[in-house]
């Protein structure tokens, strides 16, 4: 494991599963601090995370997934960590695959590596609607990203310090995974996928219900479009004092 690694686990009302996830991550990466970002939960998520031995960062109110993940990235960046692995608190991600993500991140010089449940047959239950959604996004993202991403909604990701710097300043608030790829592409950072095993969530409900799927599609598409056409200052004029000097 790299020396300055942090594992972040955003959690919102995941009392039933977060403890097991923390323990599983600590078994795989015993040297790395595990930080649970409690996104204003109203159940015992904080206590469960603490009992399992995680560091706990509690947000004063619910920010949404992107806000919680960005908190972890900002924290890690400000505290000098070199890389961060994000694991979801619902038990869908297999902590044993953290090593796969890190090997690719550190070995091949990528800025972000995400775990894909569709790159290889891995026993993940076939949810046709989710798979269809992923394929549509994959198709739409291809001309923007210049490569095929098989699982654009995957939240299982490892990032290095360069990506941390970008994300600590700019990270989408709602449904962040797809837009995050476009943010990285805009900043000319490199990313790729590795095949991982994912499980059905152990408890709780997904943030995307069937009724919200249509809103999700349009929201994400608009977010992607905005990121593509986003205005960014190309020139950073020096302060007057420096310019005079």
């Amino acid at each position: 494991m790299p020396p300055h690694l942090m594992v972040i686990i955003p959690a919102y009302n995941e009392e039933a599963s977060v403890g097991d996830v923390v323990r599983a991550v600590r078994r795989v990466a015993p040297e790395a601090p595990v930080m649970v970002i409690d996104d204003g939960s109203s159940d015992g998520t904080s206590q469960a995370a603490r009992d399992a031995g995680a560091e706990l960062l509690r947000l004063p109110h619910h920010l949404g997934l992107g806000g919680a993940v960005q908190t972890g990235y900002r924290f890690a960046f400000e505290h000098g960590y070199d890389c961060v692995v994000r694991v979801d608190s619902d038990g869908q991600h297999n902590p044993a695959d953290i090593r796969l993500l890190l090997d690719k991140l550190l070995g091949d010089g990528f800025d972000m590596v995400t775990g894909s449940r569709y790159l290889a047959e891995n026993g993940y239950p076939r949810q046709w609607l989710r798979r269809l959604g992923s394929q549509i996004f994959s198709l739409l993202l291809y001309p923007i990203l210049g490569k095929r991403i098989t699982d654009p909604t995957s939240g299982f990701a490892a990032v290095n310090r360069r990506a941390l710097e970008v994300f600590s300043r700019s990270f989408p608030l709602e449904y962040p995974e797809i837009e995050a790829l476009v943010v990285l592409q805009r900043k000319a950072l490199r990313f790729c996928e590795v095949p991982v095993k994912m499980f059905p969530r152990r408890s709780g409900r997904s943030t995307i219900g069937s009724a919200q799927a249509i809103y999700y599609m349009f929201r994400v598409l608009l977010g992607v479009l905005v990121n593509v056409i986003k205005y960014e200052r190309r020139f950073h004029p020096r302060p007057k004092e420096q310019a005079r000097g």
């Binding site: 970002i37 947000l59 109110h61 806000g67 960005q70």
Partner: peptide
């Protein structure tokens, strides 16, 4: 508001 909430969380930690 998001920036403040994040800062509050980090300062509490």
């Amino acid at each position: 508001n998001i920036q403040l909430a994040q800062k509050v969380g980090m300062l509490e930690w």
